[in-house]
Amino acid sequence: MTHLSAELVEKCKKVVELYPSKRSALIPLCHIAQGQNGWLTPEAIEDVASLVGVSPAEVRGTASFYDMFHLEPVGKHVIAMCTNIACMLAGAYELLEHAQEKLGVSPGGTTTDKEFTLEESECLAGCDKAPCIQVNHRFFGPMDNASFDTLLADLKSGKLADVVPPHGVLIRIDREHKRKVNYEAIDAERVEIDAAIKERKLKLEAANNATVGKDS
């Protein structure tokens, strides 16, 4: 029994099939898994691990490198406020200050009603709309205090539910087409290549061992 819903597991399996190596699907699968609870729960990490054939520690260790993956619970809406150079020049820190007062949390904090998590983020590539922010990775900008307040109200009332899905839901379009190319042939070639890589590795190890022997 998986923690992830049967539907998400099915989606994950399709994504795994797209890559020459299962492990390559690790990050896309973490995104899908994060869509279920809004953050990567330990159980979701275990499911991803078994789907890509690595240990849960490997998945956690990889996911922790990336800003988009949350290993702790977050609010329904994660507000990322860019304060990098272009937004800073347009008053991003003043906006962040306003947001902190309005929400009653510091960057990294979640409101008690679990509605909002506030983050200070690096450049989001929306510099022509500075200061810009993202809510669950959907763009808004240029922002000022008033438009921020309106945005909060709209998010809370569900008015923007179509535009801003709950946190974790990233890509709402499913790929419709399986791999079409003759992968049997490529797989056969890959077996050969893997064998060659293995052989090279063994040789390198042998060479290293020989050097170690000499040193001692």
């Binding site: 797209l18 990050i27 995104h31 996911a63 990336y66 800003d67 988009m68």
Partner: peptide
Amino acid sequence: FSIDLVIHPGAGAY
């Protein structure tokens, strides 16, 4: 000519 294309999402790391 046959070709497969995969859209791969990053996860936030400069």
